[in-house]
Amino acid sequence: MSNRITVGLDGSGAGSVAADWAANEAELRGATLELVHAEDWAQYGPFAAPLPEPSRHWADDLLSLTRDRLLREHSRLDITTHGTRGLAASKVLASSAADADLLVLGSRGLGAVAGFIVGSTGSATIPETDTPVVLVRSAEGQSHPHRPADDAGPVVLGVDLRSNCDRLLAFACEEADRRSCPLVVVHGWSLPPVFSYAPALDPGVEKEMAVGLETTLRELLSPWEQKYPQLAVDARVVIGQSAIQILDAASGAALVVVGRRIRRPALGARIGPITHAVMHHATSPVAVVAHD
């Protein structure tokens, strides 16, 4: 990896908040910060054509002014800028993040009930890159910097014990270690349908299955706890829909980490339903980590 964080800018308040979060993260990592903006001609109509000259100047100003603002608050950061014209934003962001450690994007809030809009660019970019992507929340009209004080909570990780969790655990442990905060690991589960329709047939089944899952989770975490002995790890096996359990644990979190399986189907990659739900409803920044 290049020890670089890439953040996408689009001129919105969400993009500004994402840039501030990325700058704080770059300081934590001692990384370079790259600001990227893509002028996607296709979104302006069926006939692809260069944008008017004033729009080009606006795009250049967006990069330079954001860089200047961030340097006033993070004077030691190494910040670069990259602007591209006439290409799909998702392609530009995925390409820019190919050898980066992290890609950061903003998403706009709709309120406590409606959740958040990840946006077409974010939804298209995440399946196109194997680089971890962090979605940073911005409430409607919010454009103030995301301060380190906002990161006071734990790092929350949602795991599926049937999947390979190594990349997820490595990312989450490193993030919690950098922040010197606890790591909460959540596995949500439900009884198989044959038991859920008639649990009274064997009242001990649920408890027995829960104990087995807790043992499996502890065994999964054991080598990581040895690698990070100073890290406080809270392992939770909870019955209920996985997305709901992760979102419940994620209230006030510094960062929520979920996974996306790397698939190369003929019709394109996709984001799983649990990750999709967390992306759209968590109020904390969400990291989507691709894994096998």
Score class of each variant (00 low, 15 high):
S16T: 15
D10G: 11
H281Q: 14
P265D: 10
A172N: 02
E174M: 08
M209K: 03
F171H: 07
E219F: 05
A253Y: 13
T6G: 02
V186H: 02
V257K: 02
P203Y: 05
V233H: 00
V7C: 04
Q230R: 15
P223E: 01
G115A: 10
G15P: 13
L70D: 04
I271G: 03
T215F: 01
A198M: 15
L33P: 13
P273E: 09
Q241Y: 08
C165E: 10
S143F: 11
L93P: 11
Y44C: 00
P132F: 01
V159H: 00
G30W: 07
L93M: 03
S284C: 03
V257G: 01
P127L: 12
V278T: 08
T80Y: 01
T80Q: 08
R178V: 05
R108F: 00
L221A: 08
L231H: 00
V104N: 06
K91L: 10
M279E: 07
Y228I: 03
E25V: 09
R260C: 09
A42Y: 03
D130L: 06
V17G: 01
T275E: 03
Y44V: 11
V118M: 03
V133C: 08
L161P: 03
E25K: 10
A124Q: 15
H57Q: 09
P50Y: 01
L105V: 15
L217I: 14
V118K: 02
A49C: 02
R179D: 05
A198H: 09
R72F: 09
R147C: 04
S107G: 14
V233P: 00
C181R: 15
D234M: 05
E27M: 13
A249E: 13
A266W: 04
R69L: 06
V17Y: 01
A26P: 12
I79T: 12
R147E: 06
T275I: 09
V36N: 08
D151C: 14
G83P: 02
T84N: 05
S163R: 15
G11Y: 13
E219Y: 09
D60K: 06
Q43E: 12
R67C: 14
H291R: 12
L135F: 07
Y228E: 03
L169W: 00
D151T: 13
D60N: 14
G30I: 13
D202W: 09
I79H: 07
A97Y: 02
R263D: 15
R29N: 10
R162W: 06
Q230M: 08
A232C: 01
Q226L: 04
V155Y: 00
G11A: 13
L71Q: 14
A94L: 09
S75Q: 08
G111E: 05
Y228P: 03
I126Q: 04
L71G: 09
L62T: 12
G106S: 05
L267Y: 10
G13C: 06
G30S: 12
Y197G: 15
V155S: 00
R29M: 11
E27L: 13
N164C: 06
A170K: 01
I5E: 05
D160V: 12
L221W: 04
